[in-house]
Design a protein around this nucleic acid. Structure first.
Lengths: 155, 155
DNA sequence: CCTGTAAATGAAAATGATTTTCATTACCAA
DNA sequence: TTGGTAATGAAAATCATTTTCATTTACAGG
């Protein structure tokens, strides 16, 4: 079904926008594809830099920002001082997941279960919101906050 | 129903935790009560400082951090560089709401509609998650991201 | 295959929200 | 009333992210 043309799927998304395909962007997209879960800009930089030392941190930030605005990547803030990024998956996809965040130790649990109720809610709500507010919705964040097993026991 | 004792409802929450009731904390809680929607630490500081110039920005941050960890306040990050805070309302409450965020102009729309589907989903999911992961859930964030009417029309 | 040009880039500096340090002050239990 | 400890503010430190700016590069058009 994909693989219309010769290159990766995102090439045409870039071209539509008038963006250039550059080595740095190829590497960053590769890293995002090969990362199952959320990853920070700094970590992307480390990996990108290992592949191609010419890639700078600034470019990583700029690329992620572009990708976020296009709805290719979702940016997350878990409250620990640095943002994380993930390729956006459709709500139905196998690896669609959300996050449980411990307010005390900042541990993050990714969960993929219990999606049935959610997918239904998401579809309905996105439709209603986008109709009412004329908003083109490209992504969403659902986080639950609280205290994990370890941090919750005491007081 | 509330008003068990003489003071505001949160006094006993503080005392349970062994925290002191101080002028700064009273003012900050007042401000949060009188703010319908999300507010930044800096804005709280300005208001608090107007009431009592002795209150410093550091204390505002420290108090908000405490309140967040106790599940009294929810912290939000909308991607514009500074966090926002809100008193947590029960999902059923009249002013329970969520956010629609424009990735381009950073405009934030608060919506209170379409909560029926959500409340149902939230209750089920919070229960399931907290059972499975032994997590004491105190709050949640549901954000939708995309392009607003103005920013979405172009390209 | 060249070439011009706007887009993309990296290094370094700037920014700015949040946190830490530390000496001082003030709750509040006894 | 008082001692011990939590709370506080000012100033300094931190550190992720953004901006600046001079240079390089992708790629449309010839």
């Amino acid at each position: 079904m994909p693989g219309h043309g010769r290159g990766p799927w995102w090439h045409e998304r870039f071209q539509e926008k008038g963006w250039r395909i550059t080595p740095a962007r190829e590497v960053i997209m590769d890293i995002l594809h090969n990362t199952k879960e959320h990853i920070s800009a700094a970590d992307i930089y480390v990996k990108a830099h290992a592949v191609n030392p010419a890639i700078g941190l600034t470019t990583v930030y700029r690329t992620l920002d572009m990708l976020e605005k296009t709805g290719i990547v979702q940016k997350f803030d878990f409250g620990d001082g640095m943002a994380r990024y993930e390729l956006i998956n459709n709500p139905g996809a196998k690896d669609h997941h959300h996050h449980l965040i411990c307010l005390n130790c900042k541990k993050i649990i990714d969960y993929t279960e219990f999606m049935e109720d959610e997918v239904d809610f998401l579809e309905k709500t996105e439709k209603k919101l986008s109709d009412k507010y004329r908003f083109k919705i490209t992504g969403h964040v659902i986080n639950f906050y609280g205290l994990c097993k370890e941090c919750g026991s005491g007081r």
